[in-house]
């Protein structure tokens, strides 16, 4: 309303160029936007120049980033990483964990939100949703503790297994158990939370469409497929692009906490390697930065591919 009035005023005065007029009209909003822009610039863009560390010979905190102590070494750190014995195992582990996690984890919240939306009782759906959201608030360390309690040698799962006549399994020491435990626990934590965005989208679906579909003879399931699912499809493709963009961006914390000698072969990821190289032991921060930068580049490339593909096949895209 403010703008309408203001613009009317300004048009009547017809002062300044069109661009200037628009600037004036929007000035309160631009001023309000300003702090956000400053913060994003300061904390998200400015620190990017830190990637220069990846081209130092050996950076330590306190060194000038623009004037390296050991001199510039070009892509040497990247070359070292490609030649690292760990390079292919790291790539494979990170990729598999992320891909499997994505394949399992991406459809889950969609299915859950559709199911919740189709639940007859509103109240039941609300209660279920709250229950599903709960695990999201469990901290990582607590989650790992829970995994230990459930899947440890004397844990709940093994107790049940033994009472049913099975052998106890050392899930934490088995390579084959790492990915399932990691992925399922992550999804258990977040499927309800991720479903929120879809549930919100679903709440905008016109109930009339459901009624029309009922009269058209659609079953409950058919209504989900033909009414609900199309309604959240734009959101789905948006989330898909963003997930693919973050596909290789798995954090180190959880894998690091779950790491044991037994599963190290699959649990060592790019991010945990960066952590160990860059922070934990006698560090080589330039090397760690190079690996991290390489990982980010993969992510950006994936994001661009995903976005371009999505743009081509549907009208949904990030930019």
């Amino acid at each position: 309303m403010t703008t309408a009035k203001a613009s009317a005023e300004l048009v009547s005065r017809s002062r300044g160029s069109k661009a200037f007029r628009r600037l004036r009209e929007n000035s309160p909003f631009l001023v309000m936007l300003f702090p956000a822009v400053v913060i994003v610039f300061l904390f998200n863009y400015l620190p990017i120049y830190g990637v220069l560390i990846a081209f130092h010979k050996d950076f330590v905190p306190g060194d000038s980033i623009l004037n390296p102590v050991g001199g510039w070494v070009g892509l040497q750190n990247f070359k070292n990483f490609f030649e690292d014995v760990q390079f292919w195992p790291l790539m494979r582990n990170t990729f598999l964990l992320c891909i499997i996690g994505f394949v399992v984890g991406f459809p889950l919240p969609i299915i859950v939100s559709l199911m919740l939306n189709a639940t007859r009782g509103r109240r039941t759906a609300k209660i279920l949703q709250t229950i599903f959201n709960g695990p999201h608030f469990i901290s990582l360390v607590v989650l790992i503790g829970m995994l230990n309690i459930f899947f440890g040698h004397y844990g709940l799962v093994n107790n049940i297994k033994e009472s049913l006549g099975g052998e106890r399994t050392q899930y934490f020491l088995q390579e084959s158990a790492f990915r399932p435990m990691y992925i399922l626990s992550s999804n258990w934590q977040d499927f309800g939370w991720s479903a929120i965005i879809y549930i919100a989208a679903l709440s905008n679906v016109d109930p009339g469409q459901h009624e029309a579909a009922i009269l058209d003879g659609a079953s409950r399931f058919q209504r989900v497929i033909h009414v609900d699912l199309p309604a959240i499809m734009p959101m789905v493709s948006l989330m898909l692009i963003m997930s693919i963009g973050g596909l290789m961006g798995v954090g180190y914390e959880k894998a690091f906490l779950m790491q044991t000698d037994g599963n190290l072969g699959v649990s060592e990821l790019i991010s945990t390697y960066v952590y160990r190289k860059g922070i934990l032991n006698d560090t080589n921060q330039s090397y760690a930065t190079a690996i991290g930068l390489f990982n980010s580049i993969i992510n950006v490339v994936l994001l661009i591919i995903a976005n371009t593909t999505s743009k081509k096949f549907s009208n949904n895209s990030l930019w």
């Binding site: 016109d206 009339g208 469409q209 009624e211 029309a212 579909a213 009922i214 009269l215 058209d216 003879g217 659609a218 058919q222 033909h226 009414v227 199309p230 309604a231 499809m233």
Partner: peptide, 30 residues
């Protein structure tokens, strides 16, 4: 669906992602 009735809604309640043809054909397809 078994009452052999059809209904026209106030706000039309057309399926936005289907073409006009598919909208009209939907019940028959089912």
């Amino acid at each position: 669906k078994d009452r052999d009735i059809a209904m026209v809604f106030q706000n039309y309640a057309l399926y936005p992602h289907m073409s006009v043809y598919d909208n009209m054909a939907f019940s028959l397809k089912l």
